[in-house]
Amino acid sequence: MSTNLTPATGAARPHRKDHPLWFLIPALAVLVVFFFVPTLFNFVYAFTDWSSFKSEINFAGFDNFASLFGNGTLLNALKVTLVYAVLVAIFQNLFGLGLALLLERDTRVNRAVRVAFFVPVIMSALAVGYIFQALLKPDGALNGIIGLLTGSDVSIPWLGNTTWTIVVVAIVHAWKWMGLSMLIYLAGLKTIGDDVLEAGRLDGAGRWTMFRSIKFPLLAPAVTFNVATALLGSMNGFDIVQATTEGGPGGTTELLNIFIFRTFGQGLFAQATTMSLVLFLTVTVLAFPVIRFLRKREDVL
């Protein structure tokens, strides 16, 4: 539709003829079958008693919601998910922005290093999880290295601490995705005009002032995209946490998706669907104000 160069004025809309509506059907069919219907069913099944224990599926009203909110597990999982998402958003953006600033200049070395930092993004998340699980074991490589440096026997249970393990896992998640944030920040930095930077330099701005007053404000659109995708994407996190801690220790990293997986495994399909509906709604409810706030930041400029 945007290819139509002549403005559509008056009653006659000539582009209708060369783009008939039925051209939409193949794409629409894919959209409906693979996106629309599953989402719809996510809503429908949440109000039934679908389980692996019987063949018939009956309407159950708000029963699933009542029992899920009745015991604290769902709220706890929701809390863990939010904490995890915020941590990932912070770390991933800090790492990504730091890398982008470090590798900003287009030298040959920088190009190679950028590729190296992008490799984790295309790696399988489960593989990343299992690698870190091995590295972070009490007798794993990380403790070995620390032990070598300090000259003492170190056996810190990185993945066995009920307070700090969620931070460790969030850092692993951020490590995997930081290359993507880096790429977007790099693209953002490229859009900053040389004249602006030069003017800043002529005014005597140092590195820090240049970053704080010019680069960072002008990166606002990149920040919006990176924060929103990291925050909302990690709300749907599962693979890395499942591979490293399986929700442990003591349920302190049990994301909602892990809880859903466990519930589904118990055969309580309707309840698992209800939970994923709750997750869907939470992400939606969170997405609007977050994106609006970040967009507002862009407007101020």
């Binding site: 509506l21 059907i25 409906v32 079958v33 219907v37 719809l40 069913f41 692996s52 019987k54 063949s55």
Partner: peptide
């Protein structure tokens, strides 16, 4: 069209009772 397609898909799948 969207509504029609969705309704059609619903009618098709709603009859299928897994298990």
């Amino acid at each position: 069209t969207l509504a029609l397609a969705a309704a059609g898909a619903m009618a098709l799948t709603a009859c299928a009772d897994p298990g």
